[in-house]
Write a protein that binds this DNA or RNA. Sequence first.
DNA 1: CGTTATCTTGAAAAATCTCAAGGCGTGTGG
DNA 2: CCACACGCCTTGAGATTTTTCAAGATAACG
Lengths: 211, 211
Amino acid sequence: MYLRNRARAPSAAPIIRTFRAGAQIFSEGDEITGGYRVLAGAVRSCRYLGDGRRQVLGFHLIDDIFGLELGAKHSASAEAMVATAVVSVSTRSTAGPGEYVDLLELATKQLQQAQDLTTDLGKKLAHERLANFLLDVARRLQSTSFRMPMRRLDIADHLGLTIESVSRLLNGFERAGLVRIIDRKKRLELLDLPRLCDLADGRPTALRFDS
Amino acid sequence: MYLRNRARAPSAAPIIRTFRAGAQIFSEGDEITGGYRVLAGAVRSCRYLGDGRRQVLGFHLIDDIFGLELGAKHSASAEAMVATAVVSVSTRSTAGPGEYVDLLELATKQLQQAQDLTTDLGKKLAHERLANFLLDVARRLQSTSFRMPMRRLDIADHLGLTIESVSRLLNGFERAGLVRIIDRKKRLELLDLPRLCDLADGRPTALRFDS
DNA sequence: CGTTATCTTGAAAAATCTCAAGGCGTGTGG
DNA sequence: CCACACGCCTTGAGATTTTTCAAGATAACG
């Protein structure tokens, strides 16, 4: 299924690389050498402010492509969140190993995602952002029950919150029967999609998940 | 100077359109017909949430291009903030009137801007966002003294704040000697670039601009 | 098993928003 | 030309949301 959009006849054998949890794949400012597709594991891309604050711009799950940009240098760092395997990809114009992807299409999708996130961060309340995020992960993983590769702090730094707020809200969601947290807090099961959607879109709901 | 990057030999005569203040140029979901370059005036692009909340994704000032996207429909609305004139632009692949621009390059620049904004909204305090915004406008207009085409509410909806917060902060900046507000609140003069930079980057400063 | 990282929880503080009122500028009709 | 209305901006006070700080609980790791 997900082979559909991949170009065949790569110019060279694909290069597969593996990273252990926490490993840096590339850093902001590094020379761009090519991109990757996630084969296993999960990656976060982040920017660091001068004083150490971190913004997680996005998470790259299985089959997602990251690290391909127009320009000479990476504009964000990429870090493996768990043990991760990636395969190199290239653009049609940049000769390179592995499969080819359409850079314009990729940039467009990323722009779309960035604008979605901007709207979330600018206009939504903490619980709306979190509900929206959980639904997004579920959609991307094609399941309402999934193992979350990211830690609470990653989620916080993605949603513009603190780790304490994420923890409180997530446990509040569980108390309200919206989700179930299992498998030593790593696995999540979304129990009430309709109400999570209401929450995500800021529709009033008679639920109390805070305090 | 700003002719340098424009392709010549357009396929047809350029089309110039004008809009009065507040006019809708196109709406989210509209069929994409082509893009525009701002000749005079200023444009904001925004997204509306279901309940009326609005996120201003960006401002398009003189010479900026907007409205060109890959895909069939616009992902945001564009509205003239003041009396505005635009000239149509096209991509190389999409035959159309007016000059040609590189869509990939454009999308890349927009992605960059969107990620910058995301980082601001996610990780910065209100006064840091505003200082950063003022410096950005000054940089784009090539002057520390400029007429702001956007209203307070536009700034608020761009920076994820309320109009009251923007007003308080801006007047606080003036009280602190960082800026001067003139010409019935429309014109702004940045007086202390170094300190505004410090503010924008979250470096501690012995200034009190709040309260 | 002890040690460290991650997560949770509470209470107080801080940032920002909301609500309410008033001020200023501009345009319009009398 | 004045008076009024309307849009936009400012300001204050209190409410709300989210953070901060501080502790403890749970899980991961050697």
